[in-house]
């Protein structure tokens, strides 16, 4: 299992290590084989909030635009001259509220959600499950998913449903991973 480096963008840090799919195409490239199909196959295995890691012998710049169309941002690491590691992760808005005193996390999160586009996701990084925020999210029709990734780290994925596909709150995705 591979985990994002600590200086990675926040949106990558909130990806669960268990939901990262890694594909190494260095040997394909060295052998002159086209790796695109293999990369796309791996991309198909990435869970909703997961990430894809591609290892290549050069910076796979053309892949950035392809993956951007799929809603992925990227973070590139040059490990050696012929060893590149590129992280493709969901292009979500991340709000780190760990250094805010209650109820500032609630106020800042609701303010950020007001400008969140349909279908987009905001991830709140907190040290605890924000119990007072959850009913307000339900009232406003947001879908959310709580992931307690460490004793003092909680990732709350909040998604504004697409207008066309908006569902009543009772049927929204609501899972609690402990």
């Amino acid at each position: 299992m591979i985990a994002p480096v600590t200086d990675a963008p926040l949106a990558l840090q909130v990806v669960d290590a268990a939901e990262i799919i890694e594909t190494d195409v260095r040997e394909d490239l060295r052998a002159g084989r086209e790796p695109f199909a293999r990369i796309m196959a791996a991309r198909g295995e990435v869970p909703v909030h997961g990430a894809l890691v591609v290892r290549a012998i050069f910076e796979p710049a053309p892949l950035y635009r392809v993956m951007a169309k799929e809603g992925f941002a990227h973070h590139t690491e040059r490990l050696a001259d012929d060893d590149w590691r590129v992280w493709f992760y969901p292009d979500v808005l991340v709000l780190d509220v760990r250094d805010m005193e209650p109820p500032e996390p609630l106020a800042h999160t609701l303010a950020a959600l007001e400008t969140l586009a349909d279908g987009r996701t905001l991830v709140q990084v907190n040290v605890r499950v924000p119990q007072f925020l959850l009913p307000k999210l339900e009232e406003r029709g947001f879908a959310f998913e709580i992931r307690e990734v460490a004793p003092d780290r909680v990732h709350l994925f909040i998604r504004r449903p697409s207008s066309a596909a908006a569902a009543p709150p009772s049927t929204l995705e609501k899972q609690h991973y402990v």
Partner: peptide, 21 residues
């Protein structure tokens, strides 16, 4: 202050500028 903020100001969070606790 937290209880009062949560009850009377919390519902308006995100819709307008609010005082802090």
């Amino acid at each position: 202050p937290f209880l009062i903020w949560n009850r009377h100001f919390g519902p308006l969070a995100g819709t307008r500028s609010l005082p802090s606790v």
